[in-house]
Simulated assay, not measured.
Amino acid sequence: MTDIGVEAIVSGGGLNSPQRGRSVAKLFRHRSFVIGFAIIAALTLAAILAPLLTSLDPSAMKVRLRFRPPAPGFIFGTDMFGRDIFTRVLYGARVSLFVGLAVSVISGFCGAVIGVVAAQFRKLDAPIMRLMDALMSFPAILLALGIAAALGPRVSSVIAALTVAYVPAGVRIVRAAALVVREMDYVQAARLSGASALRIIVRHILPNCFSPLLVHLTFIFAYAILAEAALSFLGVGVQPPLASWGNIIAEGRDYATEAWWVMLFPGIAISLAALGMNLLGDALRDILDPRLKGGD
């Protein structure tokens, strides 16, 4: 999202305007939002209800059933160890969606705090933004790969690595929004009335930075799911026997020709999750940016 787009969303009042109720109603009439919400809700429910949808253990090995193609007994087939792919995809959704949610929430919180501090305290602005520029000079996936390799292959390392990789973009977006809000009349009035910097940040600046940040975080959720899959595929992400969409694909790469289903179904799940979050982000941007007209 560009700084101009951020300014437009902030000037339009975002989620804190008197029209907030109407904006929510518009969201549920927006085709992209409805489709994206349905996709993400279905994937989330499938992950939560995994024990009810299948009675199999995702790590249980039955070598005599290895490489069974999709059939009524195993609708997604089995892998090289005879494990049911449908079960592993369901349980893998728990890990992959959790990583996406954790990265978006933590990076959003850190981005909001650092971005507002940079905008409000001018002496800290330059050093903070130069540090963010330095982090952004590395491709996010390469930065995450290096951090995850240094911390070790586990879920917490993946979350930490992706958070560091995606925080700078959030900082820039919040800072751009905060710089706009900081110069508005009601903030200047609060400052002249003697309100402390902390009160101004918490009561006036942060709430008006939420809208552009929310739009950004929907895309970060999708990027994090894709990046987790990439890190697991490269061997520095979530490790077996814990299932994630990425390591299921990694385990099936050596059998891509004779057992294509091992990679196909987790790949479809990743694509659906990324599509759903991008549709949600597009809808939020359409509704919150007054320069755009959201489709109903």
Rank of each mutant, 00 (worst) to 15 (best):
Leu192Val: 13
Leu206Asp: 02
Ala42Cys: 12
Leu135Gln: 09
Gln120Phe: 13
Arg29Leu: 15
Asp185Ala: 13
Phe121Asn: 07
Leu143Gln: 10
Gly108Leu: 02
Ala140Cys: 03
Leu292Gln: 08
Phe109Asn: 11
Leu49Arg: 05
Leu179Val: 05
Ser156Glu: 15
Leu101Ile: 12
Leu131Glu: 06
Ala195Gly: 04
Asn247Pro: 05
Ser157Ile: 00
Ala176Met: 00
Val24Arg: 10
Leu151Phe: 12
Leu234Cys: 07
Asn16Thr: 15
Ala126Leu: 15
Ile268His: 02
Leu162Cys: 06
Val24Cys: 11
Arg130Ser: 00
Leu231Ala: 03
Leu56Glu: 15
Ser107Glu: 07
Thr78Phe: 07
Ala41Gly: 11
Val155Trp: 05
Ala243Met: 10
Gly281Asn: 06
Asn278Arg: 08
Ala189Cys: 05
Val155Thr: 13
Leu179Asp: 03
Pro168Gly: 05
Asn278Thr: 11
Ala161Thr: 09
Ala250Lys: 04
Ala256Gln: 06
Gly281Arg: 07
Val171Met: 00
Phe33Gln: 02
Met1Val: 10
Leu214Thr: 11
Leu264Ile: 12
Thr163Gln: 09
His30Arg: 11
Ser211Val: 05
Ala178Tyr: 01
Ser55Lys: 14
Arg20Glu: 09
Ile270Leu: 07
Ile173Pro: 03
Asp79Trp: 12
Gly194Lys: 10
Val167Cys: 08
Leu15Thr: 11
Ile4Gln: 04
Ala149Gly: 09
Thr2Pro: 01
Thr163Ser: 08
Phe76Pro: 00
Arg182Glu: 00
Asp296Leu: 13
Asp296Arg: 15
Ala60Leu: 10
Ala177Ser: 07
Phe109Val: 15
Met80Phe: 12
Glu183Asn: 07
Cys209Tyr: 02
Phe86Arg: 13
Ala224Thr: 05
Phe37Gln: 01
Ala93Glu: 13
Leu45Asn: 10
Val10Lys: 00
